[in-house]
Structure formats: C-alpha cells, structure tokens
Write a protein that binds this DNA or RNA. Structure first.
Length: 578
RNA sequence: GACCCCGUAGCUCAGCUGGACUAGAGCAAGUGCCUUCUAAGCACUAGGUCGCAGGUUCGAAUCCUGCCGGGGUCGCCA
C-alpha cells in the first residue's frame, strides 16, 4: 500500500470531477499535481498543490479552486478533515483508521513493502567500478562501487530490469606494460635478482603471485623467448589474475556484477570497425584537426589530422577522435562501440557511475547515445562520485602513491567491515565530498549513523524476542487501533512514506535518500522507545494488557520490515543482535 | 580560456526535483533529568541576511544570468 500514490489518484479524481462540473473542456495535465507528506506534521497527513498548479486551466484563483477540490475530498471516507492554507495548499487529515490499514498492509507485504513497478521492466544497464585491471582496487574506487551497487539494487526494487556491469579496459598499451611488469616478477620467481622495478612499470608486489603462477604453469619455458612470443601469454594470465583479484575485492563488499565486458572483445569481434562504418554512413565522421586545449598549451602540441566524430552536433564541446593520426583506434572509438553494444542488447537506460575526475565524459557519453540511437530512445544517466578523504581519529591518512603504496579497498573493508563501508558511502549525496574516519564509523554511539540505524533494527528484534519469551506471539490481525500516542502515529506516518520515498530516490538516482530516511526512522523509533522510560504505559511490552502488547509487537514487526527493506536496498546487513 | 561539482547554524550535512505562518537534523554550547522492555543515555533552550547581486514566478535554498570563494577536469594517454 502506497498511501501517497493512492491519494494522488483520489486527488486527481477530485480535480477531474471539478472540471466536469465546471464544463472545462480542455484536457487537464495532472502531471504536476502532487500528494506529499507536509513538512510540518501539524498541517495534517497529506498535502497537495493541486489547486495551485491547476488554477490556470480553470481560470480561477488557487484558493477558489482549492475550495472546490476540498469540498470533493472532504467526502472521501478516509478523510477526516480538509484545510486550505497559505497560497492554496490543501491539507488532508486522514481518519485514524488509516494507520491500522497501513500497518496491516506492511505486515502483509513484508519484504515486498517498498517495492514498486515504476520501472515497468525497462532495461537498465548500470556500469560501475570499471577500474583499469592493472592492480587491486584502491580506496578511490570504494564509493563508486558502493554507490553503483546500491543504485542498481534501488532500480531493481522499483521495477527496472537491471544489469550490473563492469567494463574491462583490457585493450590498451597499459595492459602490455602490466604484462612486462609481471614478466619481471616471473624472472624474480625463477630466482633472478631483478633489482628495482624500472620506472614506467608497475612496482606493486601484488604481481608477485602472477610471477609465481607463471613459473608454476610454464616453468622456465617463457624466459628465453622473445617478447613477441611471451607477451600474449603473460598478458592473458596477468589479466585473468587481476580480474580475479578485483572480483574478490568487490565480493568483500558484497558486490557481484553480472557482466564483465571486455574492451578487447570489441576489437576482436570487429565491433569497433563496424561502429565507425555506421557513423560514417550517417555522415558523422570526417578528417580534421582539433584546436589545442585552452589554457596551458602543452609544449609538444602538434597539429595533426585525424578521424573525428561530430560530437558537437550532439551537444559535446569538441569533436572526438576515433582514429589517431597513425590510424590506430582511440579509446573513444571503443567507447562508442561499447555504447552501441549496450543499445543493441536492448538497454534503454545507460547509467554510468564515474569518479568526479571523469566529469568531462558526461557530454561525450550523451552525445554517443544520441548519435547512435536518436534523441529519445535511450536515456544516459551519469552519476559522479566525489572523492573520499580518509581520516583516523581526525588525522588525515597519508598515502604515497609511489611504490604502489596506497590504501586499498580491501584494507578499508577488512578494518571496518562491509556494512560500515557501504552505509557511510551512502550517507552523503554522491556529488559532495566525503570524509571517512575509521575511528568514528566504528564507534558504538548515537553519533555513528551506521550503528544508530543497525541498532534500531536490532532493538526491534530484541523486543520481539522478549515478547515471545513472555508468550506473546503476533497473530495476523493486531488491534492497531490501540496505538494512540502521537509518537506512534508519527512513526506510522513515517512508515507510510517509505514506498513513495523509494520511488523518488530511484527516479532521482539518489540512493542516499534511503540512508537518510533510515536515519530519521531510527530516530523516531528510538525516541518512542525512550518515551517508555518515563511512561511505562508506552512501553512495547505491557504485561497487564496483552492486546496492547500484541499490537505493539506487530507494530515493531512493521518497523523492522521497513528498516530491513531499506537496509537491503543499501546492501547493509540488518543486524539482529549487537 | 572552457566545462563540471560544491558554497545552508560555530562544525558536519539534509532539504523529497519551485511551495506555506516558524529553512531542518546531528555534533559542539547552555539547562534539567535518568540508570532502563537491550547497555552503548533522554528532554528542553539557544543558534542561520540559505556565498553576493539581479531576473523568471502568485511563490526561489531550489530554475535563469552575472560575479565571488573552494575543488576537479580539459590534445591522438587509458
């Protein structure tokens, strides 16, 4: 039961009825009409802007129209009272019987409460992480990984057909560099003294196991061959091992993407060549030169002719090179082929989760999709995640990028656990920078939002357990009308908002809204629990009143479902005990 | 030079995609209370020209323009 969605229909119906009564012939555009929780609870349970957005169509003032709509709404069985306020808001106060129905519906839906069919099965591709497979994931990848994963889950729960995808950049020159670095470790594993890793190669010790694996599988057979002979072998083994490592790192954060898409495969299948031929056929390719970058012009700037894609025709700032001046494909060329492949696989939402340093990619990704699929066929959504700064008890964590000394994703997860990492990464909107303090996020106190929310869930479980020990088991039908305290009503109203909130978060591609909602909900719940300290009659377990206790325990189950369902979207474990 | 993000209470941040008289939380500060159905406290008070200036609108923290401040990105690299 989505209370707000239901009432939106009621309100729209009332507007339509008024229009009919007034002989308004023009078709009504009801899209801007909303039904939302008022900011201030004293305004009632549901507020609508209907009169203010529709008054022009009716040729009246907002308040005059509000009167007409309000008269209709007042007749609805679930409406206790209607008020017109401010410039023309209509505030509805619902009958008290509505809350038992909301709670009953939450219990009936259980894990499904909050899910929606909004996406209508539309195919959405969420691409995230996509780090170069040249080493372990580092802390810079954590946020995008968690954000992408939560967004994918959010879309899944709102009716999209979601694929979680990782694009492997395995076609470029850096893969050869990686293979050469691994070959050095191979020689090392064979007992050679390799000295310092030459600059330009990857120095990380994570390549040692690759060297050892090469010895295990190939013995000394690669050692004396020319590079042209060993490179393809080493490259493949290294790439496989790097990807296994990355997948394991992601798994530590409970992230499991379904598709790992190889850039190289686009070249091998001829998709890149086909894509360029396509664009050429559309007249979108030409030979030309690009202007030098503004600002600091590089010393070695050379003006050369190359094969360009008319990206500016689709909103990009400059045309983008498909072929280098030496005729080789650019990285951008495989990007286009990759987008084309996604579109061919039927995706209508191409969602990219990128680091803020990739902001410059937004326009070109949009341009690609427009050029390939036309204006309205495919939605491109790019979400940028700002940097995460690490702290330890207030002191910034320093790391030198040299010698491969960086804090890895694994380091962070191993230290504080996946739940803490996931929740904290989502407890900030993605485009704002984030401070992550190892000390604070593991603290067991009200100041730590992860703890606060998880504890709320654990507390519901604990009281339910206690009640069960007292012999109070929850029947299917609880007397929710016994919940009469304002704090209980407020909490029920908060629970009623959940489905609407999930839809809004999905539509905006903003999973952080779920995290903030859970924080607020946990706050409401803890506050209610605390009221029981002063007022024993507000405790959840009231021994002398079994019926009330039953209702309260059923209420707890509803709260628990919402907390658990929200946490599930974020990928955070709902702890049952702490 | 261009583009992107950010600028809201002393601090850290929300603000539901333009709404209401009183812009919200948490921390820190001040005052009082408490030792519990699960302990890692609770309640109240105080605190803001929403960076600045214009504009659109019945209505702007939210949209547009121009500034100011902070961060980031910008060639055939990947």
């Amino acid at each position: 039961m989505n209370l707000f969605a239901e009432f939106l229909q009621v309100i729209r119906g009332a507007v339509t009825d008024v229009a009919a009564a007034q002989d308004i012939a023009a078709p009504l555009d009801l899209a801007r009409v909303t039904a939302e929780p008022p900011r201030d609870a004293t305004h009632g349970d549901i507020a609508t802007n209907a009169a203010m957005v529709m008054n022009k169509a009716f040729g009246t003032s907002p308040r005059a129209l509000a009167e007409l709509i309000a008269d209709r709404l007042a007749k609805h069985v679930d409406v206790a009272s209607v008020e017109i306020a401010g410039p023309g808001f209509i505030n509805l106060r619902l009958v008290s019987g509505i809350w038992p129905r909301v709670l009953t519906s939450i219990l009936a839906l259980g894990e499904s409460y909050g899910r929606s069919a909004m996406g209508g099965g539309r195919k959405a591709n969420v691409e995230y992480v996509s780090a170069n497979p040249t080493g372990p994931l580092h802390v810079g990848h954590v946020r995008g990984a968690v954000f992408g994963d939560a967004l994918a889950q959010l879309l899944t729960e709102t009716g999209f057909d979601v694929t979680r995808e990782y694009y492997i950049n395995d076609a470029g020159a850096q893969v050869d560099v990686l293979a050469r670095s691994a070959f050095l470790r191979y020689r090392e594993a064979l007992g050679e003294s390799i000295g310092d890793i030459p600059s330009g190669l990857y120095p990380g010790s994570y390549l040692k196991p690759v060297g050892e694996a090469l010895v295990r599988d190939y013995g000394t057979s690669l050692r004396d061959k020319p590079e042209s002979a060993w490179l393809p072998v080493v490259r493949e083994v290294t790439m496989d091992m790097m990807m296994d490592m990355i997948r394991a790192d992601l798994a530590a954060l409970n992230i499991r993407q379904e598709v790992f898409f190889s850039e190289k495969s686009l070249h091998e299948s001829g998709a890149v060549a086909e894509t360029i031929a396509d664009l050429r056929a559309k007249g979108l390719v030409y030979q030309g030169t690009l202007p030098p970058p503004k600002g600091e012009v590089p010393e070695d700037w050379e003006d050369r002719e190359q094969t360009l894609f008319r990206a500016t025709q689709f909103g990009d700032d400059v045309d983008r090179p498909l072929l280098k001046s030496d005729g080789a494909y650019t990285y951008f060329a495989s990007d286009v082929a990759y987008s084309r492949n996604k579109i061919a696989r039927g995706y209508r939402e191409l969602i990219y989760v990128l680091g803020a340093d990739h902001a410059g990619y937004v326009k070109r990704l949009e341009a690609i999709a427009r050029a390939l699929a036309g204006d309205d066929q495919v939605d491109v959504v790019v979400r940028l995640c700002q940097l995460v700064k690490l702290f330890r008890a207030g002191e910034p964590v320093r790391m030198s990028k040299r010698a491969g000394e960086f804090v890895t994703l694994r380091d962070v997860v191993d230290e504080v656990g996946p739940d803490v990492v996931r929740f904290m990464m989502l407890f900030r909107k993605n485009e704002a920078p984030l401070d992550f303090d190892f000390a604070k996020v593991t603290e067991q106190s009200k100041d730590n939002p992860v703890f606060y929310v998880q504890y709320a869930h654990a507390r519901t479980c604990s009281v339910i357990r206690n009640a069960a020990e007292e012999g109070v088991l929850v029947p299917d039908k609880a007397r929710f009308d016994r919940l009469e305290d304002d704090a209980e009503r407020a909490l029920a109203r908060r629970l009623a908002e959940f489905p609407r909130l999930v839809e809004a978060a999905a539509a905006a591609h903003e999973p952080h809204r779920i995290a903030f909602y859970l924080f607020d909900l946990a706050g409401d719940f803890h506050a209610l629990w605390n009221k029981g300290k002063d007022l024993p009659q507000l405790r959840f377990i009231v021994k002398e009143d079994v019926e009330l206790t039953l209702a309260r325990v059923a209420f707890l189950r509803a709260i628990r479902y919402v907390l658990a369902n929200g946490l599930r979207i974020l990928g955070v474990t709902p702890a049952e005990e702490m």
